[in-house]
Nucleic acid binder design. Sequence first.
DNA 1: GCCGATTTGTCCGTATGTATC
DNA 2: CGATACATACGGACAAATCGG
Lengths: 240, 240
Amino acid sequence: MPKAKYEDIYHNLKEKLENETWPYGSLLPSENTLVSVYECSRNTIRRALSSLAEEGYIQSIHGKGVRVIYQPLERTAFTVGGIESFQETARRNHFQPATKVIQFSVVPADEAMAKETGFAMGEELFFLRRVRCIDGKALILDINIFLKALVPGLTPEIAEKSIYEYIENKLGMQIVTSKRKITVERASKTDRECLDLGDYDCLAVITGQTFNSDGIMFEYTQSRHHPDYFCFQDTAIRKR
Amino acid sequence: MPKAKYEDIYHNLKEKLENETWPYGSLLPSENTLVSVYECSRNTIRRALSSLAEEGYIQSIHGKGVRVIYQPLERTAFTVGGIESFQETARRNHFQPATKVIQFSVVPADEAMAKETGFAMGEELFFLRRVRCIDGKALILDINIFLKALVPGLTPEIAEKSIYEYIENKLGMQIVTSKRKITVERASKTDRECLDLGDYDCLAVITGQTFNSDGIMFEYTQSRHHPDYFCFQDTAIRKR
DNA sequence: GCCGATTTGTCCGTATGTATC
DNA sequence: CGATACATACGGACAAATCGG
């Protein structure tokens, strides 16, 4: 539950934008009007608006108003974006998810791995690989490497369900920042063995580091996606 | 030239983070210390810090401090991210860029195109296709569709150089928001004819809409990248 | 072209809440 | 418990862009 006022306002405005209370291309009520409506200071309104601008819902125009640039999208593809677990994404897209753990081991970080992942050498790591299936088809190969010290008690059984659920609810650790990079790679022998790639010879790869609320990196991930089930959305705002 | 104080502070801190004045994993000076250093209010400092947090440079920890999570990266790949023209990206990556215009026409938006691009039906559009080369290899196929009314005087000669440069400097129009989506598609016949794909049968596709400072969408783009020359970077911050 | 009303952009000072140590 | 540090919120001031008369 959000307790901050600007978060309430943000969610309320977001919902109204998605409902097309104000249609695409129109102007929002002025900030001062919103101040009266929500009974708060202009700073608080501006904070909510700036979050919506970052997410591509609106755009402020100096001296003029705030333009709606949100357009309702067709939900055909399996989209990712933001920090979201496989489970959450599957549920949002109304798919039946399944996970198969194909590797679960504990290893120390050697030099090559330290360089690639960003963990310190010698750190004890959980190394696991999982295949994600949707409607019976194997579509995503996930490689997760966790700092063992920060994810105590992790088992293959938990990995079969939802690791993020375990981390956040059972361990009480909060995931905050995630740095990622997206590339396209040729399918390896393992990819072809684990996934139903058909005659594709490439896949979409999301490689990332995840940081907890102490600002410590505790996870390195590689998510290897079937091309047909990959769609990443993003909004950028130009800085001068 | 940024004239806003928070932008100066933002750039100054960013440079120091990239110089590793404060190493990865350490804490920044406290906000109050920075207030003294930059002689400004805490609001102004916090604004600069929040921009850096969004870009994955730092992460605030309540009651503790601000952790540096920036790591210098190896510049091996051709990376994209943010709003940046091909020219700018090429220069940043120290490559010799070249552009070949293979189509330049004016068409009205029919129903199918209107639905795909988001332009209104019947709008007059510039439709162009360009091949981007680096060190003599054809690596990117760009399809740009512009609202003709908002980009008057566009010619194939300008398209050969930099359209963004023309739009921003000559027309004085500012690009502000860009909404994009990344997918992996099978290479079409055209892709194979235009690009040096080798034996790849897929490519990375960035599809996007660009909005000017009036909040009007004036461009629809599709950038089709050779897999080896595609790397998209992103930072996500988890919201509750 | 100028002026004034409206609207967003930047910045400040202050107060209070909450997490960490 | 107190000191420190970040988080939220308010209110006010002035600048800058837009628009209509």
